[in-house]
Design a protein around this nucleic acid. Structure first.
Lengths: 138, 138
DNA sequence: TACTAATTAAGAATGATTACGATTTATAAT
DNA sequence: ATTATAAATCGTAATCATTCTTAATTAGTA
């Protein structure tokens, strides 16, 4: 999924393709790491100085719904990253300082015996490894 | 770890064993599921009607540090549960409605090749399966 | 029992996120 | 190209969970 594809997805679903949306998608596409809403706002303000918090929050939520971004939660704050181009389902090692990631190919769901989940109706799962990347290590 | 052991742990570390702390530990020990701070407060107020939010937040944080509780984050809110008695490291299926849990014995960290994490210095990991328990299913 | 440090209550402050009314803009039909 | 309209945005206020502050209370101990 590149930027044009993301914008096409939006248009196909009836959403408008505004300059701010395109720039916001570009920011995530370029960074390829987890960003907070605030970080994304600051970067977006380099192009649109008067853009508001509301616009960022509204759009990252939309992008998550549209599968353009993926979301996680670190220390009471939501982080967003561009959904990886590799179509194969995978997980991440995440740097808790800068949001940099590294793919983990294996998914633990593949190794569970069918009755592990018992009477639960499964909705989702999360497997994340947290750490410090080379740059952020003390 | 039972309630007395938990209180002994606190005392050993120089913390005072107050009635509110003991009752709060008891609440989690009885429930054996994830609770929000608000839920814990409401239950604690059945015994101590004038107890404040601050007391709950301060103490659940302390209990997490002391390894008496474990913590997770669901939809922008922190949930806490009594640390399972089984000493063996494990993970959970969690009901996103009521916080009820079921143990998962396997840990995905055991199956990673050593170089998976590359240049990351690993701090922690999370593997959780989210779903609806039998009671909460529509 | 009295002292000292930890704990607590009450409410204010904080920080992230969401909501709202007014204004602007993208889109599609003319 | 112009216009109508519905969506998107701005600016700001509101909300929600959590943390902080200060003064009063309490547990542990001498």
């Amino acid at each position: 999924m590149n930027v044009e594809q993301a914008m096409d997805t939006l248009k196909k679903e009836g959403y408008k393709t505004t300059g701010k949306r395109e720039q916001l998608v570009k920011i995530f596409a370029n960074e390829k790491r987890y960003l907070t809403a605030k970080e994304a706002l600051i970067k977006l303000q380099q192009t649109y100085p008067r853009v508001s918090f509301d616009t960022v929050y509204r759009n990252v939520s939309l992008f998550v719904d549209m599968n353009i971004l993926e979301e996680t939660e670190l220390d009471g704050e939501r982080w967003y990253r561009y959904r990886c181009a590799t179509s194969k389902h995978h997980h991440h090692v995440i740097c808790v300082e800068c949001g940099k990631t590294k793919q983990i190919e294996a998914c633990p769901m593949d190794m569970l015996s069918p009755q592990t989940n018992g009477e639960f109706q499964i909705i989702d799962h999360k497997f994340e490894i947290y750490g410090l990347c080379y740059v952020c290590q003390p």
